[in-house]
Design a binder for these strands. Sequence first.
DNA 1: ACTTGACTTAGACAAAGTCCATCGTAGGAT
DNA 2: ATCCTACGATGGACTTTGTCTAAGTCAAGT
Lengths: 137, 137
Amino acid sequence: MSDLLERLRGRGWRMTAQRRVVAEVLDGEHVHLTADEVHARATLRLPEISRATVYNTLGELVSLGEVLEVATDRRAKRYDPNAHRPHQHLVCAQCGAIRDVHPSGNPLADLPDSERFGFTVSDVEVTYRGICPACAG
Amino acid sequence: MSDLLERLRGRGWRMTAQRRVVAEVLDGEHVHLTADEVHARATLRLPEISRATVYNTLGELVSLGEVLEVATDRRAKRYDPNAHRPHQHLVCAQCGAIRDVHPSGNPLADLPDSERFGFTVSDVEVTYRGICPACAG
DNA sequence: ACTTGACTTAGACAAAGTCCATCGTAGGAT
DNA sequence: ATCCTACGATGGACTTTGTCTAAGTCAAGT
Ligand SMILES: [Mn+2]
Ligand SMILES: [Mn+2]
Ligand SMILES: [Zn+2]
Ligand SMILES: [Zn+2]
């Protein structure tokens, strides 16, 4: 994700300690943190960072297409740095664990023209729900 | 939806003016109202109905399987009386209009065993997004 | 009609997120 | 190296959506 910082600088981003820390917190695989979780982790490295700045920075990363917003539960949105490989989510209904999954085929193709009602359909969001091995015992 | 009231009575529901009004508001096709929209419409018929009662009644209808909760945007949940015919949703990214759609095939089948990671997958929620004819001009 | 437990109510509370006035600083200009 | 200033950060008020509780009300069985 260090190349992310380069890309952002290239887009005219002013590089601040706060933005760097938020980007660092979002580094990794299967990362799906809420804004407040990002804030908590960022605070460990930069104690004075504010909630508003975390929200602002996450919003900018989403606008730039570098981070995805996912709404797997009906609680807080989660922020997903895995934005460059299309994928869906598999969520444990009990403990909330989230896995990236890659279904076969293109889910968009499952919607026939006769069911599009003149819409220009550009995107589909799929969330699978079930019980994870740990919760199944 | 008048048969709904009968079914609920059969399940031991005490029939109150508030519950009747909420059920009436939810009658129809392609109805996807937020709790506060239900409350606003219920208030026209029964001015003293409280927000808490609307939330309670909607929650009960969901528990009974008579109404579905859908989370198409990241704002308020919407309540969908079309609970007996499985379907998905097509949402206009601009104006928020929601249509029921019926994709071909079973979306659950698109997730191969190799992508289930030991989960017992029981459910899938699909939201298609695009631009509706009215917004496309 | 009486009784009673289920139902409703208003308002306090909470979680998630937005907005704003003000302060601070990254990075270009000198 | 220092200065400038527009962009970014901050804390706190505010909004939206939803939950909870204590007290009052009423549907329905007797
Ligand atoms: Mn993901
Ligand atoms: Mn529907
Ligand atoms: Zn689990
Ligand atoms: Zn539209």
